[in-house]
Structures are given as C-alpha cells and as structure tokens.
Design a protein around this nucleic acid. Structure first.
Lengths: 219, 219
DNA sequence: TGACTAAGTTACCGATCGGTAACATTGTTG
DNA sequence: CAACAATGTTACCGATCGGTAACTTAGTCA
C-alpha cells in the first residue's frame, strides 16, 4: 500500500550518475517519488511521463536523463512498492517473534491501520495486475512473484502455528488480506468490509487450531 | 453523460436477442460484444476504439454511429457486466430457496467454477475500479453502487441465516469473495488461494452460528 | 424502379503519447 | 577563474488517441 515514502537513500544509480555522497535531493529521486504517488493514485496507464516530470517540478528531458523509458520506471516502481511492502510486513510482525498467531493478527491490524488513511488505495502491486494487459509479461511476472511470496509466507505462518491444514488456512488468510485491499478501493476510510478482517482471521485460526470439526468433506 | 443517442435498437429486452435465429448480427452488437471482451482482457485504458472496431470487423466510423463516445461505451460495458453478474448470482442461488447457508455455499462454488476457466480474469467491475482514476467519477460511482449491493446481499444472507453478528459475517464473506477475484488475476486456473474459499466460508459460518465466542465489534 | 437506411471507406483534425536533439543555465569544485 | 556535471528550456519526431466529415456501397421495401 502506497502510504509513506521513505526517501530510498541507498540508491543504485545507473551509468551516468556518479555517486556523490551529498544528501541533496536529486532530480531523479524527486521524479521517482512523484511517479510512485501518481501511479498509485491514477494507475500506471493513466499517467504520462510529461505529467510526472511536471508534477515533480522538472521536465520530460530531465526525466529521460534518469530513466531509460517509462517501462523502466514502471518496473522500478513495482520493485520499490514490493520492497516497501516487505519492510512494512517485517515491521508489523517484528514485535511478536515466535508467536505466529500474534504475528498474523498484527499483520491484519497493521493493514486496517493503513486502510484508515484516506490516501490508501489498496495494494499497489495488485492494482497494477488489474490494469496490466496479458502482453505486458515482464510486469505481471514481477507481480506474480510478489503474490506467491505473500502466499508462501502465510503458509509458513499457518504451519508454524500448528494449523491442521496450513495450506488451506494460509490461503484463506490470503483471501482475507487481498479482499481487504480490493474492497478498500471502493469503500472509503474505515467503513468498508475490511473492518471484519480481524474477527474473521481469529475465527478461522480458531477453527484450524481447536480440535473440533475436521475440514468439510469435498462437496 | 450523453445517453441521448436513441439508437439503442429494440434488442434491449433480454429475451429478444435469441428471438430470430437467422437474423444478422447488428454492427452495434458485434462491436459491443468485442469491446466487452477486450476491456475485460486488456483493461479499459488499454483498448482504443480503433482496436475495438477493427477487432469487430468494422471501423471507427461505424463505431461512432452506434456509440456517442468511448466513455458511453465504457459505461454501458460496466452496466452490462453488472447485469450479467446479478443474473449469475441469482442463478447460482436459485436452487436453494429459503436456505441462506446453502445459497452462500453455492455462490462460492459457482465462483470457483468460473475461476477454473482460463479466460477468467476476476471481477470486471472490480478490475475497472483498480484502474480508474480518482477523477473518473461517473464510472467509479457505478462500481461503488454495485459493490455496495453485493455487500448488502451478503449482509441479508447472513442475517437470514441467523448469524450472531450478520454484519461481520457478511463483510467477512465479502472479503473472501473479493479476495478470490483479486487473487485470480495472478494465480492461474484452479491452483490459487481461491481454492480455500469454500472451506473458509464454512468455517466462518460455523463460527457465527454455533454458540462459541461473542464478537464485539472493535469500534 | 426509386427511396431509404445500415454499413464500409478514406481522409482528416487537434491532442497527447513516449522519446530525442540542441542549446542554455546553474552550482559545485579545483 | 575555468572545467564540468546536473538540470532547465525549447522545439521537434512519429505514433496513437478520441472524434468527425464526406462519400460510397449494399440491402431492404414500397
């Protein structure tokens, strides 16, 4: 989710940009930051490089001195979003080491917290997937890898929790997580179905931990 | 929004389409059908009217004889998608009148069935919301109304089921539903997290029906 | 036959798209 | 100061965008 942008300090620049340790904000960074915001708000196809450069107080020529193409910028945007996402995930989970159940709950609590921001428009990577065409392979491959990593992490947490069927529980949690992101696109602030995520998470975990009813028979 | 184009030939009533088997398909219908497919596959912003007309075996001029603008076409596309969605919903639910629990299960079973088609790219309305900018108000208002109707229906089903907290249960189901649509964008065929939807639905309903733990809304 | 209509065809418009060339300006550093 | 790198400015390119005008073709029906 696109919230707050940390000014990605340790930046690897390509080619022409020699490393100067000065803390001054490079045009490249300003442009990139602006691009991230605009892509998140208006969608990737809905923002042109001219608009990005202008919004960053620069111009198209300076844009192309820092980025090989719009496509390269988009790729970097998605990578950055993923980087921030894992940082957010790790931060949310960190206070509860060796307590997978509490970690999952903390994750959804953190999601709800972000969802309350009025700048929230759900999952940047997921939204990108929704507007990407079939032929934009490189991008959707990137998003797919990210989503698969989310899934694996949830599986691992469910397994560490000792769930009876960790795959099912992990997948169920992923549905709740992504459902929260998806509905947040439509429902404003804290009034949407995402408010039910945490009770649902608890109920599902309970159902998978307590030795009550076995998994429902296959239809 | 200019809907003044009265050229909406008489086939508006649902049954009239299949009436005349030998009738040649009108250009308008061919174009509209093609547009729906292309919008769904490549996104609304990713398809131009020229491509639509060409794919329909026609040309741009004929397109503008039938549609006032691309925007009008998009609006009609979203309306049609919603119409089809409710028809699908009602069809899935019809075999189980007065059995809200079975209806909900049938709904998710039908969703899973559709998700297995390789042409499935999740929820057309929801995807549109993901790529719509903030300033495209008319469209997102349409999507919002649709999503709110989904939510209300799920609330009603949960209430009819006698759930302890019908709002929470309905919202939880909506998260699962939309999570299924969202993840289906990324995960192919029947291998994604959506396979966990039905077990999750059953577990959640069980938790809300059996006299377990109360769920105070975490306002 | 003639009138009407639906549709195809070609050419065009202004705006915007991603992307580039050439030149002017600034700020830092030796 | 001069050298140099980073950035701003203007103008331009070909392609595509949504949208329109004018003309032609073909089918239908009286």
């Amino acid at each position: 989710m696109g919230g707050d942008k940390t000014a990605m300090s340790g930046n690897e620049s390509s080619g022409a940009c020699a490393a100067i340790p000065g803390a001054k904000t490079r045009v490249r960074d300003r442009i990139f930051e602006t691009a991230c915001e605009l892509f998140y708000r208006h969608g990737i196809h809905g923002v042109g490089v001219d608009a990005i450069a202008a919004e960053a107080g620069s111009n198209k020529m300076s844009f192309y001195r820092s980025f090989a193409s719009k496509d390269a910028l988009v790729t970097e945007y998605l990578r950055e979003q993923e980087r921030e996402y894992w940082a957010w995930w790790d931060g949310a989970v960190a206070p509860y080491p060796n307590d997978p159940r509490r970690q999952i709950e903390a994750l959804f609590e953190a999601q709800l917290e972000i969802a309350k921001s009025n700048s929230c428009r759900g999952c940047a990577l997921g939204n990108a997937a929704a507007e990407l065409s079939d032929d934009e392979d490189e991008l959707s491959t990137l998003v797919r890898a990210y989503k698969e990593k989310v899934r694996k992490r949830l599986h691992a947490l469910a397994r560490a929790m000792g769930a009876r069927d960790a795959e099912i529980l992990g997948d169920s949690l992923m549905l709740l997580l992504d459902g929260g992101y998806f509905t947040r696109l439509i429902f404003p602030l804290g009034s949407g179905p995402i408010c039910a995520a945490i009770p649902a998470v608890r109920a599902l975990i309970d159902a998978h931990l307590s030795g009550g009813h076995a998994l429902p028979p296959p239809r």
